[in-house]
């Protein structure tokens, strides 16, 4: 496998600009969520959690999809950098997945008085995914670094992306027979302004994930390059 951590001085210069745009958009999203969007008639103020909760969930899915894409590239092109990119994407996805569970749980408590609802399909799906991708780290860090670890991590990331629709189907099937729905969730009927606020928040959160992804990737690449340098200097 070819070692290639491309030095990207031009791109590196754009990272602060990216972070600045992200910060701006997140601020804008908060303004929209709290001051522009009207209050929901049924759920009151706790509905505003949705403006972050749903984009965070969607972004987690996107991160896992991105990780699977990079994993596919690794297995196909066999360039080492795809392993790092896939790993960082899984890491971001897991963080945003944990955030989905946390914000979802708080919303459940605010709406129904319970910290957890087995009838909430999205939450249960995220719990399964969270377990799955947590095992990714257990697996990855118990294997010696090298092409074997990269390949195995990549195959596992691909399994994750296939698991998403299969698990979703399973949970849908389970809710009707094994766990009958006790609480029905009325999805927020979004007016025009609400939808705008949602879209702003979605873009902001996606950009946030991408910024964090680029930051972490830069850090890990630096690590690897420094290690190579150290080896070169101490032999």
């Amino acid at each position: 496998m070819s070692t290639s951590y491309p030095n990207r001085p031009a791109r590196g210069g754009r990272l602060p600009a990216l972070a600045a745009v992200t910060a701006l958009l997140v601020g804008l999203a908060i303004v929209f969520a709290f001051f522009v969007a009207p209050e929901d008639a049924d759920q009151g103020i706790s509905q505003r959690i949705f403006y972050f909760h749903v984009p965070i969930a969607l972004t987690a899915y996107a991160c896992f999809g991105w990780a699977a894409f990079k994993a596919l590239l690794l297995l196909w092109r066999k360039e080492e950098r795809y392993d790092l990119e896939s790993y960082v994407a899984v890491h971001q996805g897991t963080i945003f997945g944990a955030l989905t569970l946390a914000t979802g749980s708080i919303w459940a408590k605010a709406s129904w008085g319970h910290w957890w609802l087995w009838s909430e399909n999205q939450l249960v799906l995220f719990l399964v995914l969270f377990l799955f991708y947590s095992a990714y780290f257990m697996l990855r860090f118990s294997i010696e670094e090298g092409p074997r670890r990269a390949n195995i991590s990549a195959v596992y990331a691909l399994f994750g992306v296939v698991l998403v629709p299969v698990s979703f189907l399973a949970i849908r099937l389970a809710e009707n027979v094994i766990h009958p729905t006790v609480f029905t969730r009325d999805g927020p009927q979004m007016t025009g302004t609400m939808f705008l606020a949602f879209c702003v928040a979605w873009v902001a959160i996606t950009l946030l994930a991408y910024t964090l992804y680029r930051v972490e990737l830069a850090g890990k690449r630096l690590d690897a390059n420094l290690r190579e340098l150290r080896e070169a200097l101490t032999t």
Binding site: V128, L129, S134, A135, I171, L173, A174
Partner: peptide
């Protein structure tokens, strides 16, 4: 750890 999350859909299918 690897197996149980992937086994969840199987358990759902089987119990169902």
């Amino acid at each position: 750890l690897l197996f149980l999350p992937l086994a969840i859909p199987l358990v759902v299918g089987g119990v169902g």
